[in-house]
């Protein structure tokens, strides 16, 4: 059967099967995004902390997680953790792995955003009697958000694309189903091209959104 004949005969079957993996892809992407957004903020605040030890720890964390591939980090968590008595499920390993990895990148985005706000803002808040954390929460972060939103959106796109590696630790998402379909039908061409199209339908609109946010941000300045 040629490619076109096969696509005509089995196209819908392939598409519907692959879309069946979409919820798992979305859960991994959203779960690790939330994980990274929260944990990354903690790392960024430690990084900016006046205590040397804390900021040094945060730097070590950021450098290590940005200096090694996400795939290796996933393998350490999924295959390595059982050696120290923890056995994460594939989904937990994927969310924690991509989340820890993403936190390192987000920490740098947060830091750049926080540093873009004039120090006088923080000092004014402190002189009004706010604690440093309150000042961050009510004065600095809301203003920094405008600067941070475009890079955070770009980060979310990268994260979504990174979910395509979590089949390697056993999460049954789009790519895992694609590999199963290839074993089943022996037609890798149709399967991977459809899988690719599904990813493009998610990433291209997000990229448009990121570009629009960036233009708006520049218009503000």
């Amino acid at each position: 059967m040629t490619f076109w004949q096969f696509l005509h005969a089995k196209g819908w079957y392939l598409l519907s099967t692959l879309i069946g993996g979409w919820p798992q892809t979305a859960i991994v992407a959203l779960g690790s995004l939330v994980f990274a957004l929260i944990f990354g903020l903690a790392v960024a605040l430690l990084r900016l902390s006046p205590w040397r030890v804390l900021s040094w720890l945060a730097v070590a964390y950021i450098e290590f997680f940005r200096g090694t591939p996400a795939l290796v980090q996933l393998f350490v968590i999924y295959f390595g953790m059982p050696d120290i008595g923890l056995s994460p499920t594939p989904l937990e390993a994927a969310i924690v792995g991509l989340g820890l990895n993403g936190a390192a990148y987000l920490a740098e985005i947060y830091r750049a955003g926080i540093e873009s706000i004039h120090r006088g803002q923080l000092e004014a808040a402190l002189s009004l009697g706010m604690t440093p954390l309150k000042a961050m929460q009510h004065i600095v972060l809301p203003q920094a958000l405008r600067t941070m939103l475009p890079p955070i959106t770009s980060f979310a796109i990268v994260l979504l694309k990174d979910t395509a590696i979590v089949f390697s630790v056993g999460v049954v998402e789009i790519m895992a189903l694609a590999r199963n379909l290839v074993t089943e039908t022996l037609h890798s061409a149709a399967v991977y091209l459809i899988a690719g199209t599904i990813y493009l339908c998610m990433t291209i609109p997000m990229a448009r959104l990121a570009a629009r946010l960036e233009r708006q941000r520049q218009a503000w300045h």
């Binding site: 990174d162 590696i165 790519m175 890798s188 991977y192 899988a195 990813y199 990433t203 990229a207």
Partner: peptide, 17 residues
């Protein structure tokens, strides 16, 4: 827009087929 893994799979497996 494609995840790199997907692009690798497409480049490696699709043309021969």
């Amino acid at each position: 827009g494609l995840p790199i893994v997907v692009l690798l799979y497409i480049v490696y497996f699709v043309p021969p087929q």
